[in-house]
């Protein structure tokens, strides 16, 4: 189908974009368009105005800044995936990005667009939660920052006021040795995950010092498996402790949908948590 009629706006600066967003009724931002365009074509979205952010150079770009990697919201997923600092220091982010759509969509799709679309099964949403990314938001009342954990308010609902937009995000570059793994199950490579799991393990004295486990696709927003994280701290990293952590997935309350029933997501989550923890530990380079 063809997209509905709308008025097109192309701001040249962030200030201009913020003014338009605050001044136009029923306006939507157009980032990479890889989710919004299908929504327009299928007539799920009827904006009166589209504000195209693609020609605001200041919104795109990747910069290492002290111990953090700053990523502009309009950075293409492909550019982040190919960035040498991501490959070397945040390999779990690259691992997740490789599973976001396909080359064509990553060439256009943006990091900020995916986060703001906030599909519960989106890889970038899960991995940004796992990596505790800090979000930069701009609006008519100025700029503010927000931890990723506070960004999803509910199903596809980011903590943005109608006149605010995401301008960038910061990933802390790991200081302590760790092992991390992002893994997912999708019916076809490149589809949204049915369930995804991201695990980070920080070894200490040959055991697990600290663990971080994040699941995507098991609820309206990403879930941190806090019970399992607490249970793993100080434990030996073996099949038994990983199985115990995976068993915490029994308490999840995922949704049924046309694709799979809730029990299947729960089973899948447990399997993926176990696999992610096992691989993360193999990568932790414990000596």
């Amino acid at each position: 189908m063809k997209p509905p009629v709308f008025e097109y706006h192309r701001p040249a600066s962030l200030t201009e974009a913020v003014d338009m967003l605050g001044g136009l009724e029923n306006a939507r931002l157009l980032a990479g368009g890889q989710s919004l365009m299908p929504m327009l074509a299928m007539r799920f979205a009827f904006p009166d105005h589209l504000i195209d952010l693609n020609r605001i150079p200041a919104l795109a770009g990747i910069a290492e800044d002290g111990g953090t990697l700053r990523v502009g919201a309009m950075t293409r997923q492909r550019d982040l995936l190919d960035h040498p600092v991501v490959r070397a220091r945040l390999p779990m982010l690259a691992e997740a990005l490789e599973q976001v759509g396909h080359r064509q969509t990553r060439n256009r799709g943006t990091v900020g667009g995916s986060l703001c679309h906030l599909d519960p099964a989106a890889e970038l949403v899960a991995v940004a939660t796992a990596l505790d990314a800090e979000l930069e938001i701009a609006g008519p009342r100025g700029a503010r920052t927000l931890p990723m954990a506070a960004f999803p308010l509910g199903f596809m609902t980011p903590a943005l006021e109608p006149d605010e937009l995401l301008t960038g995000l910061r990933f802390a570059l790991p200081a302590l040795p760790q092992g991390a793994c992002f893994t997912e199950f999708a019916r076809r490579h490149g589809d949204y995950a049915i369930v995804s799991a991201a695990a980070i393990l920080w070894p200490r004295d040959g055991r697990i010092g600290r663990a971080s486990i994040t699941l995507g696709g098991v609820g309206p927003v990403p879930v941190r498996l806090e019970a399992a994280e607490a249970a793993l701290a100080g434990q030996r990293a073996d099949a038994e402790s990983f199985a115990a952590a995976a068993a915490c997935c029994g308490a999840l309350d995922p949704m049924d949908d046309a694709q799979v029933p809730a029990w299947y997501r729960r089973r899948l989550a447990a399997t993926l948590v176990r696999r992610a923890l096992t691989t993360a530990w193999e990568r932790a380079d414990v000596r």
Binding site: Q34, M37, A41, D52, N107, R108
Partner: peptide, 15 residues
């Protein structure tokens, strides 16, 4: 598009 594969249905001509 500038040498890189994209899906032309997921972009507006004006872009």
């Amino acid at each position: 598009l500038d040498g890189e594969p994209v899906r032309s249905c997921l972009m507006f001509a004006v872009q």
